[in-house]
Design a protein around this nucleic acid. Sequence first.
DNA 1: ACAAAAGTGTTGACTTTACACCCATGG
DNA 2: CCATGGGTGTAAAGTCAACACTTTTGT
Lengths: 222, 222
Amino acid sequence: MEVKNPLYQNQGIHVIASIFTVEKGIVKVLLIRRTNEPFKDRWALPGGALYNNENIIDGLNRELKEKTGITNINLELCNVFGDVNRSKLMRMVGISYLGVIDSERVGILRKTQKTSDADWFTINNIPNLAYDHNEIIKASLEKLKSSILNSDILKTLFPNGFTIPELQKTYEAILNKTFDRRNFRRKLLNLDLIYDTNKEINFEGKKKAKLYKFKENNKNVF
Amino acid sequence: MEVKNPLYQNQGIHVIASIFTVEKGIVKVLLIRRTNEPFKDRWALPGGALYNNENIIDGLNRELKEKTGITNINLELCNVFGDVNRSKLMRMVGISYLGVIDSERVGILRKTQKTSDADWFTINNIPNLAYDHNEIIKASLEKLKSSILNSDILKTLFPNGFTIPELQKTYEAILNKTFDRRNFRRKLLNLDLIYDTNKEINFEGKKKAKLYKFKENNKNVF
DNA sequence: ACAAAAGTGTTGACTTTACACCCATGG
DNA sequence: CCATGGGTGTAAAGTCAACACTTTTGT
């Protein structure tokens, strides 16, 4: 149907994803380099304009696949950016989502998407981005901070298990604070969320560390 | 600017507000009766289509003023509803916000908006609403639950002070659980967020209860 | 052999929970 | 005068925070 009132016309939806990963306790976000105007050659968060015949999550997954090669990521609503002037060409409402990807799959995008630049940036070293994307990342990081405490983001980040020092370093990086090693371990174990796989792997130390996994069907972590 | 690709045309934004209030410890939500098709005469959340020249919060406040007489309410993003088919006429992305209003202002809408129906419904007694608005209320209540723990919603709900039993009943209604009277009081007082006004008012009991107020500049409550 | 990270236990402070009685007042 | 809700204290259980030493292994 066509809408007659011009006040309702020429509006669009931008869907935008902040995809985070953690490698060796360092938090990184996925950026792409824009190939078109506006902001040609600037780094930006992946995303784009939503089609009028697709659901939001589908549209964002389509954009992610096209621009980074990543598929099937779990996305959580993060923020809405509705300023009238945030896009110069027409009125676009931006809707940003938060996702995480495990470090096993971090490499995928480099192999599948040689054509367009897509790369991971550590969150302390983000360049000047297109649009209001620096602001969006900032809001997403806040959301990540609060989400890590009560969602299955950690399970997504460590599908093949983790050592407790590794998990602690992840917490410390995301929350930007430190924990006492012994208290962290005790609290985690007392929550009855994880189990010892009886394997050991090297994380950072010379000494091997025990490999744990998350149990199924648990939600609240800290 | 006109966009050529038809996939990007004919999209609009619905802004929707779930406005809650608490009277005598009973949680209520603000609904309006629709005067136009579709869903003519059905109850619905207040809101409407966003103009392309106004910011989201401004548009929602405009709709609220038009349809309920309420002005200047503080709104927090709650959810996004992007299903392609959620509106029959054209593709509308719904963005829902959460707001609260103190019981002193509850009566305003009745006085200023005689023409259109607007009324408060207790959350256990919501009729069958237009669109997906029952679903939206459900999501908003979840957001209210989590927001009450760390925002200034309570300060907004009780601008002129409150008694501790009244506050407790509000908590219990929103969180749908009960607290021990003595422990609730002690915890609240220990948080150093409120002060005794040295006045007493009647809440529910025969005995008067002390009137407290929130101190300024506090965020986290429970 | 030593540096660097992994693993373990205890204690005191604080917080949470459970619970019982008196007070004020409207009916 | 009694039913109803408001106000207070205490003890036991649980959680949190601070802290030191031993183990493993790559160099």
